[in-house]
C-alpha cells in the first residue's frame, strides 16, 4: 500500500506544475474500447477488469488522472470513489504526471547490502532530479526508490519505465541514462 516513504506510485511522486488542467480525452473509444470488452470476457464480472483497465489508461496517458478514473468507473459500472480507492492502494499507478522516464531503484535489504544507496545517489545527481519523487526541470526524469523488484541476485535492479535493467552499479548510471534521450 502506498503510504510508505519509498512508494513508487502516486503518493510520493510530487505533483508537478503541468498536467492537472489538461482536459481529459476519452481513452476507451474505438479499438481500445473493443480491447477492454474482449478482456472483460476473461472474467465472470466487469469489476475484475479494473486493474487491466487502469493499466490501459496509464499506458495511453502516462498517468491515472481523476477524470481517467471517472471514465474507467463508467466503463466497468463502478463508482469513481471506488476506483480511486483501488488506485491509491497500488504503487504502480501514477496519480500525478511523471517524467518521460520513470526510474525505480530497488533499495530493499538484499540490494542495500550490495550498494543500492549509491546507485540511487548517482541517479539523483546525474538526472538533475536531486530529490526522490521530483521530476527534473527538463521533464525527462523522475527517480524513486522501490521495494524488492524480485531480482535480488542481480543487484541492483532498476526499472526505467517498463525496461527492467539488472546489475546496475553507480559507474553504469551514465551509460544507462545515455540510452534514454
Amino acid at each position: 500500500m502506498s503510504h510508505g516513504p519509498s512508494a513508487s506510485g502516486g503518493a510520493l511522486v510530487k505533483a508537478g506544475a503541468h498536467g492537472h488542467d489538461v482536459p481529459h480525452e476519452p481513452v476507451f473509444v474505438g479499438e481500445t474500447a473493443a480491447r477492454l470488452e474482449t478482456l472483460i470476457e476473461r472474467y465472470p464480472n466487469r469489476q475484475a477488469a479494473l486493474l487491466p483497465a487502469l493499466w490501459m489508461l496509464q499506458e495511453a496517458r502516462g498517468w491515472v488522472s481523476e477524470a481517467g478514473m471517472v471514465e474507467v468507473a463508467q466503463q466497468l459500472a463502478l463508482t469513481p470513489a471506488y476506483v480511486k480507492g483501488v488506485v491509491t492502494f497500488y504503487t504502480m499507478y501514477h496519480q500525478h504526471p511523471v517524467g518521460k522516464y520513470f526510474i525505480q531503484v530497488c533499495t530493499t535489504s538484499p540490494c542495500h547490502v550490495c550498494g543500492a544507496e549509491d546507485v540511487v545517489k548517482a541517479f539523483l545527481e546525474q538526472t538533475g532530479c536531486g530529490e526522490l519523487g521530483v521530476t527534473s526541470d527538463d521533464g525527462k526524469f523522475t527517480v524513486i526508490e522501490v521495494e524488492c523488484l524480485g531480482a535480488c541476485g542481480f543487484a541492483t535492479p532498476v526499472m526505467v519505465n517498463s525496461d527492467f535493467l539488472e546489475s546496475i552499479t553507480p559507474n553504469r548510471v551514465a551509460e544507462v541514462l545515455a540510452r534514454y534521450p
Partner: peptide, 18 residues
C-alpha cells in the same frame, strides 16, 4: 500493480476481483 501483500493468497484473490 505493485503491492507485496497481493502475494498473500486471499489478497491476491481480492486484487484479481478488482
Amino acid at each position: 500493480a505493485g503491492a507485496y501483500i497481493c502475494g498473500e493468497e486471499t489478497a491476491l484473490m481480492n486484487s484479481l476481483e478488482g
